[in-house]
Write a protein that binds this DNA or RNA. Structure first.
Length: 301
RNA sequence: GGUGCCAUAGCUCAGUCGGUAGAGCAACGGACUGAAAAUCCGUGUGUCCCUGGUUCAAUUCCAGGUGGCACCA
Protein backbone atom coordinates (compact mmCIF):
# COMPACT_ATOMS: atom_id res chain seq x y z
CA UNK A 1 0.00 0.00 0.00
CA UNK A 2 1.44 3.35 -0.98
CA UNK A 3 1.72 6.07 1.62
CA UNK A 4 0.43 9.60 1.27
CA UNK A 5 1.01 12.95 2.88
CA UNK A 6 -1.77 15.50 2.62
CA UNK A 7 -0.43 19.01 3.07
CA UNK A 8 -2.93 21.66 4.04
CA UNK A 9 -1.37 25.07 3.53
CA UNK A 10 -2.43 28.70 3.22
CA UNK A 11 -1.94 32.15 4.66
CA UNK A 12 -1.99 32.81 8.37
CA UNK A 13 -5.46 33.12 9.86
CA UNK A 14 -7.36 31.56 6.97
CA UNK A 15 -8.71 28.68 9.07
CA UNK A 16 -6.31 25.82 8.43
CA UNK A 17 -6.46 24.57 12.00
CA UNK A 18 -10.21 23.90 12.04
CA UNK A 19 -10.14 22.23 8.66
CA UNK A 20 -7.16 20.07 9.50
CA UNK A 21 -8.93 18.84 12.61
CA UNK A 22 -11.88 17.67 10.52
CA UNK A 23 -9.76 16.08 7.85
CA UNK A 24 -7.60 14.29 10.41
CA UNK A 25 -10.72 12.92 12.06
CA UNK A 26 -12.11 11.80 8.73
CA UNK A 27 -8.97 9.80 7.98
CA UNK A 28 -8.41 8.74 11.59
CA UNK A 29 -4.89 9.98 11.39
CA UNK A 30 -2.43 12.31 13.09
CA UNK A 31 -1.27 15.83 12.31
CA UNK A 32 2.20 17.13 11.66
CA UNK A 33 2.39 20.87 12.10
CA UNK A 34 4.51 22.83 9.67
CA UNK A 35 4.83 26.09 11.50
CA UNK A 36 8.20 27.58 12.34
CA UNK A 37 6.84 29.35 15.44
CA UNK A 38 4.18 27.06 16.86
CA UNK A 39 7.00 24.60 17.26
CA UNK A 40 8.29 26.52 20.28
CA UNK A 41 6.68 25.56 23.56
CA UNK A 42 7.23 28.99 25.10
CA UNK A 43 5.15 30.79 22.45
CA UNK A 44 1.54 29.83 22.63
CA UNK A 45 -0.94 32.70 22.43
CA UNK A 46 0.94 34.75 19.84
CA UNK A 47 1.32 31.80 17.47
CA UNK A 48 -2.33 30.69 17.72
CA UNK A 49 -1.63 27.14 18.81
CA UNK A 50 -4.75 24.90 18.63
CA UNK A 51 -6.82 24.49 21.84
CA UNK A 52 -6.13 21.89 24.50
CA UNK A 53 -9.16 19.89 23.44
CA UNK A 54 -8.02 19.58 19.86
CA UNK A 55 -4.51 18.68 20.91
CA UNK A 56 -5.93 16.10 23.30
CA UNK A 57 -8.21 14.47 20.71
CA UNK A 58 -5.85 14.30 17.77
CA UNK A 59 -2.14 13.61 18.20
CA UNK A 60 -0.14 16.58 16.91
CA UNK A 61 3.58 16.59 16.18
CA UNK A 62 5.99 19.51 15.99
CA UNK A 63 3.71 21.74 18.02
CA UNK A 64 5.19 23.07 21.23
CA UNK A 65 7.85 20.42 20.80
CA UNK A 66 11.03 22.50 20.86
CA UNK A 67 12.41 25.35 22.90
CA UNK A 68 13.17 28.91 21.88
CA UNK A 69 16.62 28.29 23.35
CA UNK A 70 17.40 25.59 20.79
CA UNK A 71 18.86 26.37 17.41
CA UNK A 72 16.41 25.31 14.76
CA UNK A 73 16.08 25.54 10.99
CA UNK A 74 14.38 24.16 7.89
CA UNK A 75 16.88 21.38 7.45
CA UNK A 76 16.38 20.07 10.95
CA UNK A 77 12.67 20.19 10.30
CA UNK A 78 13.11 18.15 7.14
CA UNK A 79 15.15 15.48 8.92
CA UNK A 80 12.97 15.25 11.99
CA UNK A 81 9.73 15.12 10.02
CA UNK A 82 11.04 12.43 7.68
CA UNK A 83 11.95 10.37 10.70
CA UNK A 84 8.56 10.94 12.28
CA UNK A 85 6.76 10.06 9.04
CA UNK A 86 8.67 6.84 8.82
CA UNK A 87 7.40 5.96 12.27
CA UNK A 88 3.82 7.02 11.60
CA UNK A 89 3.57 5.20 8.27
CA UNK A 90 3.90 1.90 10.08
CA UNK A 91 0.50 2.71 11.54
CA UNK A 92 -1.21 4.92 8.93
CA UNK A 93 -1.42 5.13 5.16
CA UNK A 94 -2.43 8.77 5.16
CA UNK A 95 -0.93 11.51 7.28
CA UNK A 96 -1.94 15.14 7.40
CA UNK A 97 0.50 18.01 7.52
CA UNK A 98 -0.76 21.52 8.08
CA UNK A 99 0.88 24.90 8.33
CA UNK A 100 2.08 27.93 6.45
CA UNK A 101 5.86 27.99 6.77
CA UNK A 102 6.78 28.04 3.12
CA UNK A 103 10.42 27.15 3.36
CA UNK A 104 9.71 24.29 5.75
CA UNK A 105 7.11 22.86 3.38
CA UNK A 106 9.55 23.01 0.49
CA UNK A 107 12.35 21.52 2.57
CA UNK A 108 10.17 18.55 3.33
CA UNK A 109 8.72 18.11 -0.17
CA UNK A 110 11.80 18.78 -2.26
CA UNK A 111 14.67 18.51 0.15
CA UNK A 112 17.38 20.97 0.91
CA UNK A 113 21.12 20.91 0.30
CA UNK A 114 23.41 18.99 2.60
CA UNK A 115 25.38 21.50 4.58
CA UNK A 116 27.23 21.32 7.84
CA UNK A 117 25.35 22.76 10.80
CA UNK A 118 26.24 26.36 11.40
CA UNK A 119 28.89 26.87 14.04
CA UNK A 120 27.50 29.32 16.58
CA UNK A 121 30.87 30.92 17.23
CA UNK A 122 31.45 31.65 13.58
CA UNK A 123 27.94 33.03 13.19
CA UNK A 124 28.29 35.28 16.22
CA UNK A 125 31.64 36.64 15.14
CA UNK A 126 30.33 37.39 11.64
CA UNK A 127 27.23 39.06 13.05
CA UNK A 128 29.40 41.15 15.31
CA UNK A 129 31.59 42.15 12.40
CA UNK A 130 28.52 43.09 10.38
CA UNK A 131 27.21 45.24 13.23
CA UNK A 132 30.53 47.00 13.68
CA UNK A 133 31.81 47.38 10.14
CA UNK A 134 28.72 47.11 7.97
CA UNK A 135 28.16 44.97 4.93
CA UNK A 136 30.99 46.20 2.67
CA UNK A 137 33.94 44.24 4.11
CA UNK A 138 31.79 41.10 4.19
CA UNK A 139 30.85 41.55 0.55
CA UNK A 140 34.54 41.93 -0.22
CA UNK A 141 35.34 38.72 1.67
CA UNK A 142 32.59 36.81 -0.12
CA UNK A 143 33.81 37.97 -3.52
CA UNK A 144 37.14 36.34 -2.68
CA UNK A 145 35.89 33.16 -1.04
CA UNK A 146 33.01 32.46 -3.41
CA UNK A 147 32.97 34.57 -6.58
CA UNK A 148 30.28 32.34 -8.09
CA UNK A 149 27.75 32.93 -5.35
CA UNK A 150 28.79 36.56 -5.18
CA UNK A 151 27.42 36.98 -8.71
CA UNK A 152 24.16 35.38 -7.71
CA UNK A 153 23.34 36.64 -4.26
CA UNK A 154 21.22 39.65 -3.38
CA UNK A 155 24.05 41.89 -2.19
CA UNK A 156 21.71 44.00 -0.10
CA UNK A 157 20.54 41.04 1.96
CA UNK A 158 23.07 40.65 4.74
CA UNK A 159 21.63 37.36 5.98
CA UNK A 160 22.36 35.66 2.67
CA UNK A 161 25.90 37.00 2.64
CA UNK A 162 26.55 36.07 6.23
CA UNK A 163 25.30 32.55 5.75
CA UNK A 164 27.42 31.97 2.66
CA UNK A 165 30.45 33.20 4.58
CA UNK A 166 29.69 30.90 7.49
CA UNK A 167 29.75 27.91 5.19
CA UNK A 168 32.88 29.08 3.35
CA UNK A 169 34.74 29.63 6.60
CA UNK A 170 33.63 26.38 8.18
CA UNK A 171 34.38 24.15 5.22
CA UNK A 172 37.12 26.03 3.39
CA UNK A 173 35.06 25.48 0.27
CA UNK A 174 32.87 27.90 -1.61
CA UNK A 175 29.25 27.93 -0.48
CA UNK A 176 28.13 27.62 -4.09
CA UNK A 177 29.72 24.17 -4.31
CA UNK A 178 27.06 22.94 -1.87
CA UNK A 179 24.17 24.47 -3.76
CA UNK A 180 23.13 21.48 -5.80
CA UNK A 181 19.39 21.99 -5.60
CA UNK A 182 18.70 18.37 -4.79
CA UNK A 183 14.99 17.77 -5.56
CA UNK A 184 15.03 14.63 -3.48
CA UNK A 185 12.48 11.94 -4.22
CA UNK A 186 10.20 10.93 -1.35
CA UNK A 187 8.79 7.46 -0.82
CA UNK A 188 5.30 8.84 -0.23
CA UNK A 189 2.79 10.74 -2.37
CA UNK A 190 2.27 14.39 -1.66
CA UNK A 191 -1.13 16.04 -2.07
CA UNK A 192 -0.92 19.79 -1.62
CA UNK A 193 -4.12 21.60 -0.74
CA UNK A 194 -4.18 25.37 -0.53
CA UNK A 195 -6.77 27.25 1.51
CA UNK A 196 -7.52 30.86 0.69
CA UNK A 197 -10.39 33.31 0.75
CA UNK A 198 -11.16 36.86 -0.38
CA UNK A 199 -8.52 39.31 0.75
CA UNK A 200 -10.93 41.47 2.71
CA UNK A 201 -12.29 38.51 4.62
CA UNK A 202 -8.80 37.22 5.32
CA UNK A 203 -7.73 40.59 6.74
CA UNK A 204 -10.83 40.72 8.86
CA UNK A 205 -10.07 37.29 10.28
CA UNK A 206 -6.47 38.27 10.96
CA UNK A 207 -7.46 41.49 12.72
CA UNK A 208 -10.01 39.74 14.86
CA UNK A 209 -7.57 37.00 15.74
CA UNK A 210 -5.10 39.57 17.03
CA UNK A 211 -7.80 41.12 19.22
CA UNK A 212 -8.51 37.64 20.53
CA UNK A 213 -4.83 37.06 21.31
CA UNK A 214 -4.78 40.20 23.42
CA UNK A 215 -7.92 39.07 25.22
CA UNK A 216 -6.22 35.76 25.95
CA UNK A 217 -3.20 37.46 27.50
CA UNK A 218 -0.66 37.98 24.72
CA UNK A 219 0.80 40.98 26.50
CA UNK A 220 1.57 38.92 29.59
CA UNK A 221 3.04 36.09 27.55
CA UNK A 222 5.30 38.50 25.69
CA UNK A 223 6.38 40.17 28.93
CA UNK A 224 7.48 36.80 30.25
CA UNK A 225 9.59 36.26 27.13
CA UNK A 226 10.98 39.80 27.10
CA UNK A 227 14.29 38.73 28.69
CA UNK A 228 14.91 36.46 25.68
CA UNK A 229 14.04 39.01 23.05
CA UNK A 230 17.36 38.54 21.28
CA UNK A 231 16.64 34.92 20.42
CA UNK A 232 15.76 34.29 16.82
CA UNK A 233 12.54 32.52 17.75
CA UNK A 234 11.29 35.76 19.27
CA UNK A 235 11.92 37.78 16.17
CA UNK A 236 8.28 37.06 15.47
CA UNK A 237 5.16 39.03 14.66
CA UNK A 238 3.15 39.50 17.84
CA UNK A 239 6.15 39.55 20.12
CA UNK A 240 8.66 42.00 18.71
CA UNK A 241 6.04 44.76 18.46
CA UNK A 242 5.21 44.26 22.14
CA UNK A 243 8.92 44.34 22.98
CA UNK A 244 9.02 47.77 21.34
CA UNK A 245 6.16 48.76 23.60
CA UNK A 246 7.93 47.44 26.71
CA UNK A 247 10.91 49.57 25.74
CA UNK A 248 8.68 52.62 25.39
CA UNK A 249 9.34 53.02 21.71
CA UNK A 250 5.64 52.79 20.80
CA UNK A 251 2.32 52.82 22.64
CA UNK A 252 0.27 49.71 23.32
CA UNK A 253 -2.30 50.80 20.74
CA UNK A 254 0.44 51.23 18.16
CA UNK A 255 1.87 47.82 19.01
CA UNK A 256 -1.51 46.21 18.48
CA UNK A 257 -1.99 47.93 15.13
CA UNK A 258 1.53 46.94 14.08
CA UNK A 259 0.84 43.32 14.93
CA UNK A 260 -2.24 43.38 12.75
CA UNK A 261 -0.43 45.11 9.93
CA UNK A 262 2.59 42.80 10.05
CA UNK A 263 0.35 39.74 10.16
CA UNK A 264 -1.40 40.97 7.02
CA UNK A 265 1.96 41.51 5.35
CA UNK A 266 3.06 38.04 6.34
CA UNK A 267 -0.10 36.57 4.83
CA UNK A 268 0.62 38.40 1.58
CA UNK A 269 4.18 37.11 1.55
CA UNK A 270 2.96 33.57 2.05
CA UNK A 271 0.54 33.96 -0.85
CA UNK A 272 3.33 35.27 -3.09
CA UNK A 273 5.32 32.13 -2.39
CA UNK A 274 2.39 29.72 -2.77
CA UNK A 275 1.15 31.38 -5.94
CA UNK A 276 4.15 30.09 -7.81
CA UNK A 277 3.81 26.50 -6.66
CA UNK A 278 1.99 24.63 -9.47
CA UNK A 279 1.40 21.56 -7.28
CA UNK A 280 -1.16 23.28 -5.08
CA UNK A 281 -4.89 22.79 -5.65
CA UNK A 282 -6.85 25.64 -4.10
CA UNK A 283 -10.05 25.63 -2.04
CA UNK A 284 -11.97 28.02 0.20
CA UNK A 285 -12.14 27.46 3.95
CA UNK A 286 -15.74 26.21 3.90
CA UNK A 287 -15.19 23.60 1.19
CA UNK A 288 -14.66 20.63 3.49
CA UNK A 289 -16.71 18.22 1.37
CA UNK A 290 -14.98 19.23 -1.84
CA UNK A 291 -11.58 18.86 -0.24
CA UNK A 292 -12.33 15.39 1.06
CA UNK A 293 -13.70 14.42 -2.35
CA UNK A 294 -10.57 15.74 -4.02
CA UNK A 295 -8.30 13.89 -1.60
CA UNK A 296 -10.28 10.71 -2.24
CA UNK A 297 -9.68 11.07 -5.97
CA UNK A 298 -6.00 11.71 -5.51
CA UNK A 299 -5.58 8.73 -3.20
CA UNK A 300 -7.07 6.47 -5.90
CA UNK A 301 -4.30 7.34 -8.34
C1' G B 1 -31.40 82.47 6.77
C1' G B 2 -26.28 85.34 7.06
C1' U B 3 -20.90 85.27 7.24
C1' G B 4 -16.33 82.73 7.12
C1' C B 5 -13.33 78.40 6.18
C1' C B 6 -12.74 73.77 3.65
C1' A B 7 -13.39 70.15 -0.70
C1' U B 8 -6.62 66.83 -3.94
C1' A B 9 -4.90 58.90 -3.57
C1' G B 10 -8.61 54.06 0.37
C1' C B 11 -7.51 57.56 5.04
C1' U B 12 -5.00 62.11 7.14
C1' C B 13 -3.16 66.01 4.57
C1' A B 14 0.99 68.83 1.53
C1' G B 15 1.40 71.42 -3.10
C1' U B 16 1.22 73.80 -7.85
C1' C B 17 3.27 82.72 -7.74
C1' G B 18 -1.56 78.96 -13.96
C1' G B 19 2.15 74.26 -17.61
C1' U B 20 -2.74 67.75 -15.41
C1' A B 21 0.34 66.48 -8.52
C1' G B 22 3.18 64.24 -3.66
C1' A B 23 4.14 62.61 1.78
C1' G B 24 2.80 59.44 5.92
C1' C B 25 -0.37 55.46 6.90
C1' A B 26 -3.17 51.80 4.29
C1' A B 27 -2.95 48.79 -0.17
C1' C B 28 -0.32 45.95 -4.07
C1' G B 29 3.76 43.04 -6.60
C1' G B 30 8.46 40.33 -6.47
C1' A B 31 12.96 37.48 -4.55
C1' C B 32 13.88 33.49 -1.44
C1' U B 33 17.57 26.26 -0.02
C1' G B 34 20.24 25.76 7.68
C1' A B 35 17.78 32.90 11.23
C1' A B 36 12.12 31.92 6.91
C1' A B 37 6.29 34.79 11.21
C1' A B 38 13.34 35.88 9.20
C1' U B 39 15.78 38.94 5.52
C1' C B 40 15.78 41.82 1.05
C1' C B 41 13.81 44.52 -3.43
C1' G B 42 10.04 47.12 -5.92
C1' U B 43 4.88 49.80 -7.24
C1' G B 44 1.16 55.86 -6.76
C1' U B 45 -3.49 53.15 -7.28
C1' G B 46 -6.08 60.29 -8.91
C1' U B 47 -12.51 63.10 -13.19
C1' C B 48 -7.24 67.56 -7.86
C1' C B 49 -16.25 68.12 -5.79
C1' C B 50 -19.63 69.87 -10.15
C1' U B 51 -20.90 73.60 -14.02
C1' G B 52 -19.49 77.76 -16.49
C1' G B 53 -15.93 82.09 -17.23
C1' U B 54 -10.93 84.28 -18.09
C1' U B 55 -6.51 82.09 -20.60
C1' C B 56 -2.47 79.27 -25.65
C1' A B 57 -3.13 76.39 -21.07
C1' A B 58 -7.28 75.93 -14.96
C1' U B 59 -6.57 71.16 -9.96
C1' U B 60 -4.61 76.24 -9.15
C1' C B 61 -7.62 82.57 -10.70
C1' C B 62 -13.12 84.32 -11.00
C1' A B 63 -18.60 83.31 -10.60
C1' G B 64 -22.45 80.07 -9.46
C1' G B 65 -23.89 75.29 -7.56
C1' U B 66 -23.43 71.05 -4.20
C1' G B 67 -21.53 68.92 0.30
C1' G B 68 -19.01 69.48 5.13
C1' C B 69 -17.36 72.37 9.41
C1' A B 70 -17.42 76.81 12.47
C1' C B 71 -19.55 81.21 14.12
C1' C B 72 -23.77 84.71 14.01
C1' A B 73 -28.97 84.81 13.89
Amino acid sequence: MSKSLIILLGPTGVGKTDLSEEIAKYYHTEIISCDSRQIYKEMKIGTAVPDHEVLATIPHHFIQSHSIHDYYNASKFEQEVLQKLDQLYSKYDVILMTGGSMLYIDALCKGIDDLPNVDTNIRNSLVKRFENEGIEPLKELLSQLDPVYFQDVDLKNHKRILHALEICLMTSQPYSSFRTNPSKVRNFNIIKIGINCERELLYDRINRRVDLMFAEGLEKEALGLFPFKKLNALNTVGYRELFDYFENRITLTEAKEKIKSNSRKYARKQLTWFRHDPDITWFKPGMKEEIIFYIGQELQK
